[in-house]
Nucleic acid binder design. Structure first.
Lengths: 213, 213
DNA sequence: TGAAAAAGTGAAACCACTTTCACAAATGTA
DNA sequence: TACATTTGTGAAAGTGGTTTCACTTTTTCA
């Protein structure tokens, strides 16, 4: 009697599941978690509300999957950039730029994934994602510091600051009318900011007391 | 017949209003907007739920007031620091440090005010607050650039990045167990990061192509 | 003091959503 | 085809909050 799903059926189910995740991601990208009600997700995915609960035990679980799915992909891209040859500075710049450019295409999405608060359950997942995420940046930082290219600094803080810096710089323009042209200078400006922040030889030139390590 | 409120009554009403705002702020500080339901606010303020609606037409309006109230105060402090004599670097550092220290005492509050999304109405108010806010940082940046102390850069982007950088660096430790000791190094590390980011003489020393303005 | 107005109350209406469930449709086995 | 089992449906129940409102209490003013 053992019930056996035909390969076709299996595929269709997997397809539905994926379409649900995609729909959720799309809606989040459009208007944050607020926009992504279960009903809307179902509608976009072409299923009934109830069907969602055959694939995910709860809305939170769905969101967690959407989140970790996106982060996994993003991390892979970044890790790839980081692992290429070149100076730490170059690689950091490339990573920041790549991240920023993609975030700029879906600022709501980036915001939701990085900053927008949600159920404790989702929040917990995000903490893990962030760690995984900032770890990538910390890797270059460590390498740069080890090679003497970057000055001594807290990689934890710098990693967080980098993420924060471009999140803020990218996400804020969402609210007012995002001017097309502005983007052109925006990304390089952010990249420069981050590069200076981690790579500057010491603190300020003039009045500041010198730091030593 | 014109009804006239006695001074005593007037004072009591003003007092209630203020207590409502305070209660809301306190609850937000404790657990973000999530925690600050109208019922809770009323309870903490020692009033009935309905009474709140005599002082504020809606929850959103209350939040807007809480927000702008806090930002006004914070901006005043920062503007004060910025206006003191000294190098741009020194003043920027002082401002960032001051902000960071206060934010660290109520990270949830800082987070809610800077990042946590809310009703469109509140969100709109936040945009105004942010502008007012980043304006302060931009002032020092402009001064520093004018005097040649800082390199040429987009003050808009740098301003946003500074706010973002320390928001992220400060807010993230909220979720995991915030270690007491960590704070000691945290603030200087953030200050250094920001100072390097805006004050570094140019981009990186080695491999990077030179920028010209 | 008494009448009119305002302030305060809290239970209930309301709202926007998530989640469930009795049922219908489709799929697999014989 | 008949029957078990799984998948899909959407109306309805449940949830957690905001907002309203008939009412009580307090304040103002004659």
């Amino acid at each position: 009697m053992a019930y056996q799903r035909s390969p076709l059926m299996q595929e269709r189910l997997a397809d539905n599941r994926q379409r649900i995740v995609q729909s959720a991601r799309g809606l989040i990208a459009k208007g944050g978690f607020r926009e992504a009600s279960v009903t809307s997700v179902a509608q976009v995915a072409g299923l009934s509300t109830g069907a969602i609960y055959r694939y995910f035990p709860s809305k939170a679980d769905l969101f967690v999957e959407v989140l970790s799915d996106a982060v996994r992909r993003e991390c892979a891209i970044l890790r790839d950039i980081i692992d290429r040859p070149g100076s730490a500075d170059e690689r950091l710049r490339a990573a920041v730029e790549s991240f920023a450019r993609r975030a700029l295409q879906g600022p709501h999405l980036a915001y939701a994934f990085i900053a927008e608060p949600a159920d404790p359950e989702v929040e917990a997942a995000r903490i893990l994602c962030r760690q995984e995420f900032s770890e990538v940046f910390k890797t270059v930082l460590r390498q740069g510091i080890a090679s003497g290219e970057f000055p001594q600094q807290s990689v934890d803080v710098s990693g967080a600051c980098i993420v924060g810096a471009f999140t803020e710089a990218l996400v804020r323009p969402v609210a007012p009318t995002t001017k097309r042209g502005a983007d052109e200078q925006l990304v390089p400006a952010i990249v420069d900011f981050c590069a200076r922040a981690v790579a500057a030889p010491a603190t300020s030139p003039g009045t500041q007391k010198k730091r030593r390590k």
